[in-house]
Amino acid sequence: MIPVLGLVAGLAVGLFLDPSVPVWLQPYLPIAVIAALDAVFGALRAILDGIFNDKVFVVSFLSNVVVAAFIVFLGDQLGVGSQLSTGVVVVLGVRIFSNVASIRRHLFKA
């Protein structure tokens, strides 16, 4: 429950402060969001599986975000930034979907 409150607090702070993101960082935002979502759903599934570990969560979160951003950065340098972004979104999207499916099986037994 407390992490959920933290999430809501973070959302509120972000909406309230509305910080301006530097332009060079903006291409990485959507990828970072997808990567963070993947880590969050992975953590939820781990909690339900009874194997949650906070250090693993933090490390997977950060590495997801950093690696995803790095792939997009690399793609930008190679001139295939949008294609690599699509690839990252597809891979992470598949992971998110199967994690959510697993969570759904846990919660609804269906």
Partner: peptide, 25 residues
Amino acid sequence: ATSTRTVLVVVLAILTGFLFAVAAQ
């Protein structure tokens, strides 16, 4: 399983929310 109420998790949750909000904005 470790607890979900550790400082690490809460800080990361706040960070995640912040990230979502900023990205959306």
